[in-house]
């Protein structure tokens, strides 16, 4: 169903209530406009890959969704919850409680992993479930071990991040994000900081996630082959807008826009 809808993104957002919806979102850093009247929606369970040159605003989309960056104009909803509150104050125009509610639906995997270096692998994965969700340590550990098994690292549970390879650290980071049971999981260039021989193990974990879970996934990546393989829809970004989007097969074999063609030629060689 996703594949059919993906060919007509507008119809998709009309058919099922989108889990993510950007309407006319503008994001500026000082004088620089990073997202310009940005419109974008994602259906529940959809796996969307954002590609494009660096500085085109792909990562900003994820960072706005994770409430790491505020935006100035337009509207954004996640699972029907608007990011801005009617009388919200501060750069996010929302109270801490409101932001807390939004964040409970979304998780993020970072380019630089950002594991907590002073915590064992197990503690990294159980910290937030205990502190935020209020699980008992025993229950959180039970869940964490299942997740670590899923990413193939159950045997590393007592090690510290510095003792792991980059690929292993990123797999722990994925388990850590999943432990909060988000509806939407954001991947911000999850393999860009890895040595080439470690990329595969991380992509393997993401691939399994994509095929086995109804998690909504947004992925910013430069791994084009992988993007083509796992996503329902690929969006090509340039200068703060989506220039072209569609089913991966079509985008990669027959891009309609010259800018997309240029970009793909430069990255695929």
């Amino acid at each position: 169903m996703n594949k059919v809808l993906a060919q007509q993104p507008d119809a998709a957002s009309a058919a099922a209530a989108p889990v993510i919806e950007f309407r006319g979102v503008t994001k500026r850093f000082g004088a620089l406009t990073v997202l310009d009247d940005f419109n974008f929606s994602v259906a529940p369970g959809e796996k969307v890959t954002l590609i494009g040159p660096s500085g085109s605003g792909k990562s900003t989309v994820l960072r706005i969704l994770m409430t790491l960056e505020p935006f100035q104009e337009g509207q954004l909803t996640l699972a029907g919850i608007p990011y801005h509150e009617p009388n919200g104050k501060g750069p996010f125009r929302a109270s801490d409680r409101h932001l807390h509610q939004i964040r409970s639906h979304v998780g993020m995997v970072f380019q630089s992993f950002n594991l907590f270096p002073h915590m064992s692998v197990l503690r990294n994965v159980t910290e937030a479930p205990v502190a935020v969700l209020g699980l008992s340590r025993a229950e959180a550990e039970c869940r964490a071990i299942d997740l670590l098994r899923m990413v193939g690292l159950a045997d590393k549970k007592d090690q510290y991040p510095a003792q792991l390879s980059g690929g292993q650290q990123q797999r722990v980071a994925i388990a850590r994000a999943l432990a909060m049971r988000p509806r939407v999981l954001l991947f911000d260039e999850p393999t860009s900081a890895l040595d080439p021989q470690l990329v595969g193990e991380v992509l393997g974990v993401i691939r399994n996630l994509a095929s086995e879970h109804d998690l909504t996934m947004l992925l910013v990546t430069h791994e084009m082959r992988f993007a083509r393989e796992v996503s329902d829809r690929v969006c090509f970004f340039d200068k703060g807008r989506i220039v072209e989007e569609g089913e991966p097969e079509r985008i990669f074999t027959a891009p309609a826009e010259p800018r997309t063609r240029e970009f793909l030629q430069s990255v695929l060689g």
Binding site: F110, N114, A128, V132, A177
Partner: peptide
């Protein structure tokens, strides 16, 4: 900064 961002992404409060 990544440590703060990871904590935010895990929905931890400032105090936590």
């Amino acid at each position: 900064r990544g440590q703060w961002e990871a904590a935010t992404a895990l929905n931890m409060t400032r105090w936590q």
